[in-house]
Design a protein around this nucleic acid. Structure first.
Lengths: 384, 384
DNA sequence: CTGTTAGCGCTTTCAC
DNA sequence: GTGAAAGCGCTAACAG
């Protein structure tokens, strides 16, 4: 009645005891022990996940053999492998990644820490990073620091405790102590910064041409005829702030304009503060005739404040942002902005992380920016 | 020279062999075995994570005792606990959650699947969900289905294989087969739908007053004097589409207006298609004088198309959206929209998931909506 | 109060 | 080719 799965012999098969309530058989011809796959009840067993032991017992072989078959080892009997593969499929076997993770100390998970994802920029970079990472077999855990140093430290701690295999980070605007990242490095966990990079640590990083982009933006404003150009930027701890400020300053200088301290404002990148400083700038005795903002959300807050005050854009105030947030194309007038390849930033960051995991030499990726001139700064054309 | 950590006795301490290269001691007075904490070299050992065994050996006690001390068990000698706690801190011991996860079949991770996070809505819900989940000690894995059924199935599979403890899902616009979620239920993994909920499965879910919101929106348009009102909505498989359509239809009927098939369009919610159908509607022989859109991104695409065609909003075309995306306040004229509590949706979804994990009876949360009347639909005021 | 033992699911020597 | 056994880090009976 029962045929041996190994040699197909029928007559030599004898019963060989009952294990875990299952009738076991032994083929005296080829000395193969096995049980009959119990397909009717197995899928109904809720809760209990199918393991290689289940498969092994079902087939009357050892779990090592099942493991080998599943992992595609070469030195294994083709018939055995097929049996295992078939049964695994029927039982909807799913390997438990936890066991493997414990064994290999590798979770196939990477952590991403961003300051926020209210706006367009960070979600977009995350999309790019996820693209690359999931193609490489990694899951992603995302945390927001909410622009808070403490939360960022907590995020790092949580992700490290989750034993992520790598970390992708864009710094919070508050962070100026980097010990939590030194701890990451001490544990040899690959670390890549993007956009808001860490000046003190020697890690791979992805940035854009911040200086060149800012320079082009401000030069454009000057060419349009604006002369009293303010700059609303992030905390000076952030390298992006520093570089874009430098671009701003050098553009002014090139055209013989003298920067004024009261027109250069560092702030914490919260929308509330953006509004406060925009109002402050516009109520100066000598208000600026243009503002270059660190990013589009800031620029848009400025435009809203200006509109609310009845200040005409671009006639009375030119505005330029940075990033090409979709909002910048929608606001009226559309916002001139320095476009950066947001998805590519994420992709590159993930790429650098993968490289670092494979012990490739650390790289620094610098992506290009492009000035998109739109209505918020086209003074000359408006004048015509 | 060496004092016993247990009884502080010095003279009774004798050397007791070398284990793993470390001198072990034995206190003959209290029969306590121990080694001296080797603080100088321990922190330098890269790569190797400190485990309870390290602590146990360092202290000459068993790993169970260390485990108990760390877990705050009551029946443990206060001195022993302190010793363990102190050393754990000095060694920067971090428990390995993988071991625990394997043991308990609990990963403390929940998966979230959303159709996209290009726009405001889903990132905002995720922020809310993360708030609640991380407070409850859960990590979050986020996947995007990209509005694709296949990707959604793959996402579910990936998250299940990662052994998440629960799943928060908003369906892709393509999904009309729910077998992949039945598989989740079969494995007893808690499952909560939000926003785009599953009509066929009996799970907790979070929705808003879609019908009432849509009804109010359309009634508002009618009261403003619009008479030929189109509706651009999602696939009919989505319950939101269905409910908002019903609100639209009933509002028309209440005011004696007859719905026309050519003015009701279901589409796949991609921006490209939104533009195509907006153009189609506006080039009808008898174009609509108002459009109620399923959501704000759709409404905004419509406005952009209308503007490009020189159609005046709200004079020639009234537009109403749904969600109160920040973009809706920025576009010119500002978009009338049905606001929904986006963060709260995420929070509630997480809440329902936690409840389900604690075997509480499944609930359905219905959150309120509120019509925000803005410039894109205020025909009468404009006329004055 | 503490140590011993077993085991979560899997891979990987090391034998045969 | 295959099986037995060890072990990843931890917790939880079960004994003392």
């Amino acid at each position: 009645m029962v045929s041996c799965p190994k040699c197909n012999e029928v007559s030599a098969v004898q019963k060989a005891g009952i294990v875990r309530g299952k009738q076991r058989y032994c083929c005296k011809s080829c000395d193969f022990h096995f049980t009959l796959p119990d397909l009717t009840t197995a899928p109904q067993t809720k809760r209990h996940q199918v393991t290689i032991v289940d498969i092994a017992e079902e087939l009357g072989i050892s779990k090592s053999t099942v493991s080998r078959a599943l992992r595609g080892h070469t030195d294994i009997h083709a018939g055995t492998r097929q049996m295992v593969l078939d049964l695994a499929q029927q039982l909807e076997y799913q390997p438990n990644p936890l066991a493997n993770a414990l064994l290999k100390s590798k979770t196939n998970t990477v952590g991403i820490i961003v300051p926020e994802f209210r706006h367009y920029f960070f979600p977009a970079t995350i999309i790019g990073a996820q693209e690359v990472l999931s193609a490489a077999g990694y899951n992603v855990m995302i945390c927001q620091s909410d622009e808070s140093y403490e939360t960022e430290v907590a995020n790092v701690k949580a992700l490290m405790s989750s034993r992520v295999d790598g970390l992708l980070v864009s710094l919070s605007s508050q962070t100026n102590n980097f010990d939590h990242f030194r701890a990451v490095q001490r544990r040899d966990v690959p670390l890549v910064f993007f956009n808001r990079v860490c000046p003190e640590l020697d890690t791979p990083q992805v940035v854009v041409e911040d200086y060149a982009g800012a320079f082009a933006a401000v030069e454009h404003l000057i060419e349009q005829g604006y002369r009293r150009i303010a700059h609303l930027t992030g905390p000076s701890t952030l390298q992006v702030s520093h570089l874009r400020l430098q671009g701003y300053l050098d553009a002014l200088q090139k055209h013989g304009l003298v920067p004024e301290n009261e027109l250069i404002i560092h702030y914490d990148l919260t929308p509330e503060k953006a509004r406060i400083y925009a109002n402050y700038l516009l109520s100066l005795p000598q208000p600026p005739d243009a503002i270059f903002a660190l990013n589009d959300p800031t620029a848009i807050e400025i435009m809203l404040v200006a509109k609310a005050r009845g200040v005409k854009i671009p006639q009375e105030l030119g505005v330029v942002g940075f990033s090409n947030d979709p909002m910048s194309a929608i606001i009226e007038p559309p916002l001139t902005t320095v476009a950066q390849p947001v998805h590519e930033i994420g992709r590159q960051a993930a790429q650098l992380l993968l490289e670092q995991m494979n012990d490739a030499p650390p790289r620094r990726a610098v992506l290009t920016t492009q000035l998109l001139v739109r209505g918020s700064s086209q003074l000359e054309r408006q004048k015509k």
